[in-house]
Design a protein around this nucleic acid. Structure first.
Lengths: 371, 371
DNA sequence: GTGTTTAGTGAATCGAACG
DNA sequence: GCGTTCGATTCACTAAACA
């Protein structure tokens, strides 16, 4: 790295702007560990070798008969390794990346992701409702593209808005195959003559799902192959910041205009369903401290087969075992674990009520305090 | 190659038999340019950490077999290169290969295919109708596997029965995504104790489509990871010859018995997925993703008595309640349930329009899909 | 016999916070 | 840093058990 770019690398990330230039150079000039999500739609046309800005590697594996073809794969692999490494440097430790491609390039990209240290979380198939048919009838209709979702490294705490995606899917878990139409109609950017402004403009619906699912409002999304700025447009709509990198002047111009016209959705509309994991933890002992349950009270298991008694320190004691609500529940069920909150019940006025109701009361009080 | 295996390599291909041993060694002992199609289901190299329990605390029966264990990506890549090279030698010049895998291995397999000189024709997604859910809610449901279809080299005249596949798909071009159930029920081979005979048995419907689409009657199909012989069973049914290679004695035994019981052209075993499906379910969230409704838009109840606001994850928020379109509708009506699609309306150009109109638009787009 | 409920299962890289 | 504890989390389908 030159001295100049070293200095540049100290700079603050220019949020909500489109940077001109080669994406590898530009990424190397941005501060490390500064980006929450990267969405990348890299080029895959192997014929455009000159566009990769890489000298041909003269080392030829003479064992292989297809040396010329191999050489071109090699150049693409090198390019892929380089931009993936530059992107990984920018990611926060708990950040993630999405890359989209077709069978021409996605296998090389996926292998490079794994070799670079990313950890694949899912591959996701975009199933096109309206693909272009195979006119010559020589192959299957190419009706999908593949996305790879990966964290920066194994074990990282990536963002995943499970409940929000479940809501987007009528209350059942979001699957790894997404059925969405390609980008057409008014959404498709056209030039003055009515020709498409960009050959592979992605639909906003695709980015909507990616960004809702793997970022939170206020996060920064970087797109190193910005094109006409679908990533930036959807990020702005959804109250996220973006950074775009694009080499072609023409595409940048379309993207600027397009994003300027967008106004973010109202903040309350951007709140999404959250998981119980995000709710504050309530120690069972607090129910005793607050007098919602009293030492000596009896709790009954789900199914009413077991009984335990509440003690002053918030532990339970059963016939032959004592411990936390979870431990005693697990013991009686012979299970590896047990959620005591949903397992145990108390009696009041002849009714059997889950102790989780009491926890919800406490949480409601806490919310009133902080909001 | 040793002298012995050189001699062996001169031998005639042993049609309709299951060969014991390591697939690379066995393939190297078979005559070159002798096989029309290869179907391969290699080890996926899953890297599972600890145990996984379902929410009901039952334990997931993981694929932890010794044959799926590799020391590193490098070791897996080496293995992949070797068996792909041996397989390519066996293929007739106009032969083709299918390889199936998941995100754990398919990217490495695809890159190796390209590097070995194969020419990718399509990647095909097997969308499972009934995949195992993601029990911890930490990722997307892993609902598909990927197959790669490749010819021996660029420009080869591979076999593709376009019309046959079109017929299998109710008269429209077969697409690159195939919707098929996983292998369960009577088709799934069990041992004496009722446990599955093989952890990853593939459904016959999948092989049916592969073999009908890319071979002709009388062709030879080779499967180097034969397992319990789904490839051989379907090949025999369809009047094709097969060669299986399998290392595990137990799997070979099941395969022998299974294939012996099959008589060719068993019509009842043919494609069953031709029935029309019910109107596809459209998640309300898709209206938001597609921009037909926007986060912050107001919806009005039938009768115009209640109002709710659309959020980015496809849930609604009303005055004192939030949830799905159905839940919020039911809440306001004090009803046990509510069809949100007919209950909620939006305003456009002064008109009040049912959101069901938007759903019908999406369904109209999806028509023509038959999978 | 017939309809209903309960149990089981499938290629899975399936925590996070506290002390 | 590491061991311990808390406690969140499932869809489609089959088949046996039950009423």
């Amino acid at each position: 790295m030159t001295k100049k770019s070293k200095q540049e690398a100290q700079c603050v990330l220019p949020r909500n702007s489109i940077l001109a230039g080669d994406c590898i150079e530009v990424m190397n000039s941005l501060p490390e560990n500064s980006v929450d999500l990267i969405f990348a739609d890299p080029p895959y046309n192997l014929q455009l070798r000159g566009d990769l800005n890489r000298p041909d590697n003269s080392k030829v594996d003479a064992v292989d008969d297809h040396w010329d073809q191999f050489d071109s794969f090699q150049a693409y692999d090198e390019f892929t390794r380089d931009w993936l490494a530059a992107a990984r440097r920018l990611l926060k430790p708990d950040g993630a990346i999405w890359v989209i491609g077709s069978y021409h390039n996605i296998f090389r990209v996926g292998a490079a992701l794994q070799n670079t240290g990313y950890w694949i979380l899912n591959d996701v198939v975009w199933r096109k409702t309206n693909p272009m048919p195979n006119f010559r009838g020589k192959r299957l209709t190419n009706a999908h593209e593949t996305m790879i979702w990966a964290s920066k490294s194994e074990g990282a705490k990536y963002t995943f808005n499970y409940e929000a995606l479940k809501s987007l899917n009528e209350g059942v878990q979001m699957r790894s195959d997404w059925v969405l139409p390609i980008c057409t109609g008014h959404e498709r950017l056209k030039d003055e003559e009515g020709n498409k402004a960009h050959p592979t403009q992605k639909p906003q619906s695709l980015l909507h799902r990616v960004i809702v699912g793997s970022t939170n409002p206020g996060d920064v999304v970087l797109d190193p192959f910005f094109g006409t700025g679908t990533t930036g447009a959807v990020a702005k709509m959804l109250g996220r910041d973006f950074v775009g990198i694009e080499r072609e002047d023409s595409y940048r111009k379309y993207a600027e205009e397009r994003i300027a016209q967008i106004s973010p959705f109202d903040k309350s509309a951007l709140e999404v369903s959250t998981s119980k994991r995000a709710a504050p933890r309530v120690p069972f002992g607090q129910l005793v401290e607050r007098g919602m349950l009293q030492p000596g009270d009896e709790l009954y298991s789900a199914g009413n087969r077991f009984k335990a008694i509440v003690r002053a320190d918030g532990t339970l004691v059963g016939k032959d075992f004592k411990g936390s609500i979870h431990q005693v529940g697990a013991h009686y069920e012979g299970a590896p674990s047990c959620n005591g909150w949903t397992y145990w019940h108390f009696k009041r006025d002849g009714q059997i009520i889950s102790i989780d109701v009491l926890r919800q009361q406490i949480r409601a009080e806490m919310e009133g305090r902080t909001n």
